[in-house]
Computed example of a mutant assay.
Amino acid sequence: MAPFSDAVKLQPQISKQGPSTVYSGEIDPEWTIGVVPNGGYSLALVIEATMRYQIATEHKDPIHVTAHYLKAVSSTSPFEVHVQTLKKGRGLTNVLANLVQEGQVRIMTHIIFGILAPTPTGPDVASSVTRKFNAPGAYARRHPLSTHPATAEVSKRMRSAWSYRDVVKKAEDPVFTNRNQVDHPSRTNGSTVGGGGIEWGSWFELLGDETRITTPSIAFLCDIFTNAPTLLPKEERKGLEASWFPTITLAIELKHPIPTSGSYASRTVGIYHKGDFMNAPQGRHDAYVEIWTAPSNIGEGKEVDGWREEQVCLAISTQMALVVSMDVNARTASAAKL
């Protein structure tokens, strides 16, 4: 099976169609859920194309991505990504990009490019405020996982619908599993103010000595969390059959450059997910996700005091997804070819 970096490669030639620059490629059928390409993987193809489009400009880094999934991507058809500049400003460039198959737009995106670097200082920057939101400031968000990847227990069960399950590894955080129980103190009642929701966390590793976390792979990592409906205790999800959770919208804000020093794992990240709402029809539900650096790969290295202080949040994302039967997955894939 090809590593993720090979799975998002595009053909070297490009073409023009009106105002758009067109990149093309082939879907790797081994990065699917059931028979439909993983939504984050499909979005990674778009990000790869737009980064090529922006490579010779001042604004090389995607810093915010908004994607709308209009029609399921087919794993058997070639694709094109049509890219054009919407607006180029002094500090940011807005780019529109659509993933197209068989003449139909499957994914429509708006991507903001800029410079993904540490906050500059100067008279026009409120540095005294921004410092408070960086570790070790009192207002800083801290790494949400309770275990160090060196000591975390590898999860033996991998979802059977993942065609890529043999090239990834995860170690789920038991603290969140416990919090989701129906008798946990965090459960709400009539007198509760706020609160509620379902949480999940895990170390997640892309296997392969040459594999590296890249900007396009962040999109994939934002979309491999365990969905809230399946995290509910059995008594709370009666009637939930084998399900597919198709992404309808996905937004990602990239927060920090991917570190390359020895203090950070090159192919492992920490993932935190929280979901607060699920509504009928179609089991529509929300997902908030954070992607964090890891101090080591799973089962490697050694835990040292203060390891969380060095780690950074690479990206946050929000998503709207549905709950449908896995049978729909196969039917949707067949329809996507038409």
Rank of each mutant, 00 (worst) to 15 (best):
A7E: 01
A49T: 02
I112G: 02
Q311V: 06
A265R: 01
V182G: 05
R141E: 15
H184V: 08
A44N: 03
M158Q: 03
A330F: 06
E253M: 09
G103M: 08
I316T: 05
H82P: 03
D6I: 01
N94T: 05
S77C: 06
L221A: 15
E310Y: 04
Q17L: 15
N279Y: 12
G91K: 04
S5P: 00
G40H: 05
T21R: 03
G201N: 07
P174V: 07
T109C: 14
A251M: 06
R159Y: 12
S75W: 00
D286N: 15
G270S: 04
Y164F: 15
S266N: 06
T214P: 01
S317H: 00
L10C: 01
N297D: 15
K71T: 04
S155P: 00
V35L: 11
S202Q: 15
N329W: 08
V46D: 03
P259L: 09
R187S: 11
H68D: 15
A138F: 14
S217A: 09
E303D: 08
T109A: 13
K169H: 01
A2G: 00
G283C: 08
P281E: 13
P136H: 14
H143E: 14
S186E: 11
K170M: 13
I198A: 10
H148T: 01
G25W: 06
P174F: 10
G262H: 07
G122S: 14
V312D: 02
F225I: 09
E26N: 08
S146T: 12
Y23S: 05
L322M: 13
W307D: 05
G190N: 12
C222M: 13
N134E: 15
V175Y: 14
K16F: 08
E303K: 12
A140C: 07
G40V: 09
F245W: 11
L86K: 04
I33C: 08
A44V: 02
R212Q: 07
R237V: 10
I213F: 07
S263Y: 04
A72S: 12
S186P: 00
T260W: 03
D124H: 10
E253A: 15
T214Y: 06
V324S: 10
M51I: 08
E300T: 07
I27G: 03
G190R: 09
A333V: 00
V168A: 11
F79S: 05
A56W: 02
E26D: 08
L231D: 06
G208K: 00
V168C: 13
P149I: 10
E235S: 15
V36C: 13
P233A: 15
W200Y: 14
S160D: 10
L10R: 00
H82F: 12
P281V: 14
A49Q: 01
G194H: 12
P259S: 08
N189F: 15
D166Y: 03
Y288F: 12
I107Y: 07
C222E: 12
G114M: 06
E58D: 01
T260S: 14
G197K: 07
L10A: 02
G283F: 11
S334P: 00
H143Q: 11
P259G: 06
A330I: 09
F204H: 14
A140V: 07
K156D: 10
L250P: 08
S217V: 03
G196A: 09
L145I: 11
